[in-house]
Amino acid sequence: MSAAIVRMSSVSKQFGSQRVLAGLDWQIAPGQVVGLLGRNGAGKSTLLECMLGLREADGGSVSLFGEDVAALSDAARGRIGYVPQRTDLFDWLTPVQMFDYFRALYPRWNQAKVDGLLARWGFGPTLLGKPIKRMSGGEQQRLAIIRALAHEPELLILDEPVSALDPVGRREFLRELVDQVIERGTTVVFSTHILSDLERVAFDLAFLKDGRIALQGQTDALLEGARRIVVPATTLPGTPLAGELRRRQEGAMTSVIVQLPGDDAMRLAREPGVRVEPLTLEDLFIEVTQ
């Protein structure tokens, strides 16, 4: 594995008495496409903001491209693209004025790409001359995505980028993401609640729970390896199974979630009255984050 493009070590962050990140360790390699999952209020946005240096962590260290995030060089900042959860896009301007503004702030700016995306995503001359504040949430989100892609970043951070888009808009965005961004080797961190989108584009998944990355792995491997074993409570050994993530009592039965089950789990699966079920991403999300 080449040197990590994002390196977070023992990062903690607290808002008043509420601890949001608790000694979080996370590394992202160049070219990796990671879907960040977590329940509402789990701290995904805070994590991404700390990663970008937009929020100071209370403890630990964060580095991007090998540089301390608190002292990022101009060149490193030019390699980052960010779509925030709330599309604060200078809404007193029109899209054309907004893009002109940001073009002046980036040494590398692909105007042809901007024009192409605007045309493909339905921004005609009328819409381009309209103040952003008068646009719909979906249109504003599209503009935020175009703005983040315009300087062809090497690290793209997307904080719920498609929450305001309709299915057609989401499909167009994902196509763009796969064809123009991921295939170029861009590193992407993608936070969303729309799990079907993640299954399409994210090669890796990371689950945030209790301020830490509770589970991380390749999407296919996680889904193939994750099993729910429903077993009579009397049959189940008291010690945790290999790869056990969670255990829950459901009447006379116990439900055990295992990731990459070991020999003990396989042995258990052969016992009479034991049921082994594969998990969907939604099941996995619920089981890991609950």
């Binding site: 990022l72 060089s73 101009d74 900042r77 980052i80 604060d88 200078f90």
Partner: peptide
């Protein structure tokens, strides 16, 4: 929000 976007641009300065 606008300040965050500006802070990430190369010309914003350290």
């Amino acid at each position: 929000g606008e300040q965050a976007l500006l802070r990430l641009t190369p010309r914003a300065g350290d």
